[in-house]
Nucleic acid binder design. Structure first.
Length: 345
DNA sequence: AATAATGATTGCGC
DNA sequence: GCGCAATCATTATT
C-alpha cells in the first residue's frame, strides 16, 4: 500500500542530486553558493551542446578550454556513471563467452591435419620420407602422397597468411578504435571500461571472421583428402597376367563364381592385388557377365578352351584328379554355348 | 573427341 | 558382412 513513495524515491536519479557530483564539487568550488554552482554547470553544458555549431578552430579551442576546466573530471565521471547505468547495463549482463565447441572442433581438425600446428620441416625430402614411411607400397604411392603433401602445404600457407592478415587487421583496427575513443573521451563520457568492452567486441567479431577462414580451410582439406583418398581417382587397370588368372578362375567356376575367402586370398597373392580387389573384380565380373552374356561369349569360350586344354594335358600326364574343385554345371549363371567338359574322354 | 572398358564406391536388402 | 545394382571416375580404344 505505502510502497509508492519509496519506489518513486529510488527512481529519482537526477544529475543535480548525484552524490558523486556533489562530492567532486565540494572541493572544486569552494566559497560559491548553490546558485553559482548550478549556473556554472549549466554554462558548461551549454558550451558542450553548442560546440558543433561553431567553426572548426573555434570548436577546437572551446574543446581545449572545456578540457582544462576544473569541473571536467567531475562532470566526466558523472556522465560516465549515468551512461553506465542507463545504457551499458542492459548489454553488460551477457558478457561471458564460453569456448565455442565448433571452433574447438575446427581447431582440433586443423591441428590434426598439420595445417594449424608448427611448421613441419622443409620440402620434398620430408614429404617423401613421410610417404615412404606411411605408404610402404612403392614409388607410385609416394608420388601420390608427395603431391598430396604439396597441396596440403599450399592450403596451409594460404591459411597462415590469411590468418596473419586478419590478426594484423584486427590489431590495427583495435588500436585505431582505441585511439579514437580515447580522443573522444575528452569530449564524450567514455570510460576505460567501455573502451575495454569495445575492444572485446572487436575481437569477437574478428575471431568470427577467423572462424570462417578455419571453416573454409577445413572444407578445402576435406576435399583434398577425398580427392586423394578416393581410390577411384587413382585407378590402374590390373596387368594382363592378373586379369588372366582372375578370368581363368571365373570361367572355370562359372556355375558358382564365388571364390571362398581362402580362394580369394590365393588369387590375391597370385595377382599381387588385395583380397578386396579380388572381391571387387568378381563382383563386377558377375554382374557384367550376367548383364550381357553375349558380349562375354567369346571370352568365355576362350578361357574354357584353355582350361580344357590344360586339364587334358594334366590328365594325359597321368593324374586323374579334376583340377577345379567345383564342377562346372548346374548353378546361377548361364553358360556359354561351348561348355568345357573336363570329363570329356 | 566420343565411346567402351574397368576398378572402386555407395546404398540397399538379406 | 556379403552380394547385387547403380554409379562414379579413370583408362583404353576407336
Amino acid at each position: 500500500m505505502d510502497e509508492q513513495p519509496r519506489l518513486m524515491h529510488s527512481h529519482g536519479v537526477g544529475m543535480a542530486g548525484h552524490p558523486g557530483l556533489a562530492q567532486h564539487m565540494q572541493d572544486g568550488t569552494a566559497g560559491t553558493d548553490g546558485e553559482g554552482r548550478k549556473q556554472d554547470i549549466g554554462d558548461i553544458l551549454q558550451q558542450i551542446m553548442t560546440i558543433t555549431d561553431q567553426s572548426l578552430d573555434e570548436a577546437q579551442a572551446r574543446k581545449h578550454a572545456l578540457n582544462c576546466h576544473r569541473m571536467k573530471p567531475a562532470l566526466f565521471n558523472v556522465l560516465c556513471e549515468i551512461k553506465e547505468k542507463t545504457v551499458l547495463s542492459i548489454r553488460g549482463a551477457q558478457e561471458e563467452e564460453p569456448p565455442d565447441p565448433q571452433l574447438m572442433r575446427l581447431d582440433n581438425m586443423l591441428l590434426a591435419e598439420g595445417v594449424a600446428g608448427p611448421e613441419k620441416g622443409g620440402g620434398s625430402a620430408a614429404a617423401a620420407a613421410a610417404a615412404a614411411a606411411t605408404g610402404g607400397i612403392g614409388a607410385d604411392n609416394s608420388a601420390e602422397h608427395s603431391d598430396y603433401r604439396a597441396k596440403l602445404s599450399q592450403i596451409r600457407q594460404i591459411y597462415h597468411t590469411e590468418l596473419e592478415k586478419y590478426e594484423q587487421a584486427c590489431n590495427e583496427f583495435t588500436t585505431h578504435v582505441m585511439n579514437l575513443l580515447r580522443e573522444q573521451s575528452r569530449t564524450r563520457p567514455i570510460s576505460p571500461k567501455e573502451i575495454e568492452r569495445m575492444v572485446s567486441i572487436i575481437h569477437r567479431k574478428f575471431s568470427s571472421i577467423q572462424m570462417q577462414l578455419k571453416q573454409s580451410t577445413c572444407e578445402a582439406v576435406m576435399i583434398l583428402r577425398s580427392r586423394f583418398l578416393d581410390a577411384r581417382r587413382k585407378r590402374r587397370n590390373f596387368n594382363k597376367q592378373a586379369t588372366e588368372i582372375l578370368n581363368e578362375y571365373f570361367y572355370s567356376h562359372l556355375s558358382n563364381p564365388y571364390p571362398s575367402e581362402e580362394a580369394k586370398e590365393e588369387l590375391a597373392k597370385k595377382c599381387s592385388i588385395t583380397v578386396s580387389q579380388v572381391s571387387n573384380w568378381f563382383g563386377n565380373k558377375r554382374i557384367r557377365y550376367k548383364k550381357n552374356i553375349g558380349k562375354f561369349q567369346e571370352e568365355a569360350n576362350m578361357y574354357a578352351a584353355r582350361t580344357a586344354v590344360s586339364a587334358t594335358s594334366v590328365s594325359a600326364h597321368g593324374s586323374q584328379a579334376n583340377s577345379p574343385s567345383t564342377p562346372n554345371s548346374a548353378g546361377g549363371y548361364p553358360s556359354p554355348c561351348y561348355q568345357p567338359d573336363r570329363r570329356i574322354q
